[in-house]
Amino acid sequence: MPSFNFTLLTILGCGMATWVSRVFPFILLKKFDLPKPVIDYLSFVPIVIMSALWFSSLFNQHLGSLPQVNYENLLASVPTVIGAIIFKNLLVIVIIGIVSLGVIRLIGIA
């Protein structure tokens, strides 16, 4: 186990690293405007990031070989997507997701 001081210093360094990536664009864009092509490019960020985060949870990674399907998450995604289409309400969607995975684990399918 690393010493308390080393751990603290690392945490401070990591804190600076995450802070810079969050704040730097805000400071920069206060002074400058983004060119139109960049705005066009960034308009895809929300759907790409959200689907990337979702899809990456559907696989288990084994570097060097094909990803394995995470059947638990894949199965739980089905009622969650259907729930999203029917209810269009984030809270309901999240609860359906949690319950779905809970049930899948309880009855031990997947």
Partner: peptide, 23 residues
């Protein structure tokens, strides 16, 4: 902690936000 299915909350949230963003 995984037994409760809580770890799927985040994924479910991304699914929900993705769909709501699309429509």
């Amino acid at each position: 902690p995984e037994k409760l299915g809580l770890d799927f909350a985040l994924v479910a949230m991304f699914i929900g936000l993705l769909y709501l963003q699309m429509i």
